[in-house]
């Protein structure tokens, strides 16, 4: 896993405490609204996201920038690279 700090995101999706697979649905939904090159930040406490989000990026061709941790949730950063 690639850890990053202080990534500047264009849009944040706060889905902390929301149930799986909201992280993937939100990812699909939010990325559609972004311009190519913009960065999406996803906040979630769901452990499965550690695998799911990098995999989603691989599958869709978007860039997985990396992740960061807060007190009780994860932060994932995805750059939209596919229109």
């Amino acid at each position: 896993m690639k850890f990053v700090h202080d990534v500047k995101a264009d849009v944040t999706a706060d889905i902390v405490y929301m149930m799986c697979p909201m992280h993937l649905l939100k990812l699909d939904e939010m990325i559609k609204g972004l311009e190519k090159g913009q960065v999406l930040e996803i906040l979630t406490d769901y452990d499965g996201a550690l695998e799911d989000i990098p995999q989603w990026c691989k599958r869709t061709g978007n860039e997985f920038i990396g992740m960061d941790e807060d007190e009780d949730y994860y932060k994932f950063y995805v750059r939209k690279t596919v229109q």
Binding site: Y17, M18, M19, M22
Partner: peptide, 13 residues
């Protein structure tokens, strides 16, 4: 934090 766990009804809440 949800009260009832399961699927993604009601936005996962």
């Amino acid at each position: 934090v949800p009260l009832i766990y399961g699927g993604i009804q009601e936005g996962g809440r």
